[in-house]
Write a protein that binds this DNA or RNA. Structure first.
Lengths: 166, 166
DNA sequence: AATCTTATTGAAAATCATTCTCAAGAAGGA
DNA sequence: TCCTTCTTGAGAATGATTTTCAATAAGATT
C-alpha cells in the first residue's frame, strides 16, 4: 500500500498516453515527503539537492499533472503564489491561516458545509467546490503577544507609565 | 447624503496629508457607478472614454487608496486578477461564483459565521477576517443546460440512439 | 538490441497583472 | 506668485508561472 500514489500516477499517465520519467518519479517522491502546502519553489529548493539538473518548468508541469491525476490539489492563499497539497482522500477541508507567522492549519466542519449547500440551493446554484479560509492569529502568535504584554507591564514605572525600551 | 463616499475620501486624504486630485475624483466616481467586483482593467476601459489621459498606474494607486480609506475592498477570485468592490457597510458577505459564465453573487449567513468562530476558538485561533467562496453553476447556466438536454432527447432516433449533429 | 516515433526535458524567453521609477506637472499653503 | 511636496503618466521592472524549441529519452515496433 506504500506506493499507491506511484501506481495512481503511472496509471494516469498510461491512460493519457503520457510517459513515466525519472523526473516525474522524483518530483512525486519529494512532493509526498514534503510538508503540506508546498510551493513549486519549495520543491525546486528540495530537489536541486539531489537532482541538480532539474528545471523549474518541469516542476510546474509535473505539479499540474499530479493535480490532473487527482494526487494533488492546487491552493492559492493570499501570499501571491500557488501551493500544492497531497490529496489523500475525498474529504474536503478548509484552512486557518495565521497572518503573522504564515502557518496553515486545517479543519473540517460538516455543519458549515451543510449550511453552504442550503444557501446555494436557495439561489438555484449547484456547488461544485468551495473555499473557506479564516485569516487571523494562531495560538502560538497570540501566546507570544501575551508574553510581550506581560513584560511590558513589568517595566512600567511607579506611576504606571511604560518605561522607554532599553 | 449622495456624496458621502466623496467626503469620506477627501477626509481620508486630508488626514494623511494627501491631495484630492481630479483623477482621484473621477476614478471614485466611475468606481461607484460601475457594477460590483470591478477590475483595474474594467475601470481603465471605462475611464479612457471620458478621460483619455489617465494611466493604469494611477488607477491601481487610487484603488489601493480607496481600500485604505475604507471605501473599497480587494477581492481575489480564481481568475488571476484582483477585483474591487464598494464597501457600503461593515456587513461582511461571501460569494457564489459561476465557473461557466463568471457571474458573482453575494450572500451572508450569520450561522456560518458563528460556526467559523467556534472552529477557530477550539484551536485558540483569533479570526480577523475570512473568505468563503462557493464555486459551481448558477441558476441561469443550469437552465441552459436543461434546455440543451431536452433538445438532445428530441433528436434521438426510434431506437433511442442520439442522431448525429446536423 | 536496434530503430523509430513522439513525449519530455532544461534553459531561456515570453506572459501578464501589478508595481515601481522618474521627470514633468499640479495642489495648496505661505 | 512662489515654493514645497505630492501626484501623474509612460514606460521599465517585477515575479510567479508558461511557453518555446532544440536536444534527449520513453516505450512501442521490429
Amino acid at each position: 500500500m506504500q506506493n499507491k500514489p506511484q501506481k495512481q500516477l503511472s496509471q494516469f499517465l498510461a491512460g493519457q498516453g503520457l510517459r513515466l520519467t525519472v523526473q516525474r518519479e522524483r518530483i512525486l517522491e519529494v512532493f509526498l515527503k514534503a510538508k503540506k502546502h508546498v510551493s513549486a519553489e519549495d520543491l525546486y529548493a528540495q530537489l536541486r539537492k539531489t537532482d541538480p539538473g532539474i528545471g523549474y518548468a518541469t516542476i510546474y508541469r509535473t505539479l499540474k499533472l499530479l493535480a490532473e491525476a487527482g494526487l494533488a490539489e492546487e491552493r492559492r492563499f493570499h501570499d501571491g503564489f500557488t501551493r500544492f497539497e497531497y490529496k489523500e482522500s475525498d474529504i474536503h477541508h478548509d484552512h486557518l491561516i495565521c497572518t503573522r507567522c504564515g502557518s496553515i492549519m486545517e479543519f473540517e466542519n460538516e455543519r458549515i458545509e451543510a449550511l453552504q449547500h442550503d444557501v446555494a440551493k436557495k439561489r438555484g446554484f449547484q456547488v461544485a467546490s468551495h473555499k473557506l479560509e479564516l485569516y487571523g492569529l494562531c495560538n502560538d502568535c497570540l501566546k507570544k503577544d501575551r508574553l510581550k504584554n506581560r513584560n511590558r507591564l513589568r517595566t512600567r514605572d511607579t506611576h504606571g507609565m511604560y518605561l522607554p525600551k532599553k
